[in-house]
Design a protein around this nucleic acid. Structure first.
Lengths: 144, 144
DNA sequence: TTATAATCATATAAAACCAGTAGGAAAGAG
DNA sequence: CTCTTTCCTACTGGTTTTATATGATTATAA
């Protein structure tokens, strides 16, 4: 019942991009240094995000990444799903077609559907912008 | 982000015991036949439940298992935790002592704490009795 | 006593998943 | 061209999952 490092790192990378969202491209090397994640591993994580259109990229010198949209337009759930796949607690809830032979008589299916709902409702209720504001609050508390 | 078969089977075994809770002992063989789980695998699953005091057992002829308490006194969360350990989405939330060096500055920790709460609040809001009464079907009609 | 059934202890193993590491190709700027 | 940075593919070592298999021991009822 754990989120893997890929999902967690993806969130940190996206939040890092949001917090350094000046319009300039941010090289992965900088994010790697700030976040303490190796460059090579981060490449594997940002690649799906890029393919999903979550970030824009440019190669070469002074290249890097930036967000495609406003931070408020990314739910945390949408980011996690790119790396983790469906955030469902059981396999039978992940697919369009439920191929579990017990589905019709399963007494626990309702429970799992409910858990699926509360998880997805929560992760989709929080955006990158929410996390940014939380960060600002924390910094303010620290300064004051 | 999946619950393993051990956790899911544990719930089905406990619900099976609740639905056949006549006071008689239920042999594992009967549950295995009804649930389509091999006897030997079920032994591995019910053993921790027995050690945790969730079921009572008696050996020998006409032996078997029965619930220690009323179905209403088991939350689904308490059952899952016996087999799954803490139902936390990240390792840093599973321990009493948070040994993550990033804890003080982690911008995403608050989000994960929130997810941890909604998961655990939900699984602890549903009891075996709820599953018996199929109250969840009605509940899910609202949610979904 | 005999059959039943939990309990205990391992052992094996395929498969999947996890958390990276590594090497090099392609594109862009100066 | 050179340097930088993205992009792509593969691989590795470790752990976890999901069982299956074998067999011995203990307790109980009829």
């Amino acid at each position: 019942m754990k989120i893997s490092t890929k999902g967690r790192y993806a969130l940190r990378i996206m939040l890092d991009l949001a917090l350094h969202n000046s319009g300039e491209l941010v090289p992965l090397k900088d994010i790697a240094k700030r976040q303490g994640i190796t460059l090579k591993y981060m490449e594997q994580i940002i690649s799906p995000l890029s393919k999903a259109g979550f970030v824009q990229s440019l190669r070469g010198s002074s290249g890097g990444y930036r967000l495609s949209r406003q931070p408020s337009e990314y739910t945390v759930g949408s980011i996690l799903r790119v790396l983790e796949g469906p955030l469902a607690p059981t396999g039978c809830l992940s697919q369009e077609m439920n191929d579990c032979p017990r589905a019709d008589t399963c007494e626990t299916l309702g429970f799992w559907k409910g858990l699926n709902e509360v998880i997805n409702n929560y992760v989709d209720s929080v955006t990158l912008e929410d996390l940014m504001n939380q960060e600002l609050t924390r910094l303010n508390d620290y300064v004051i």
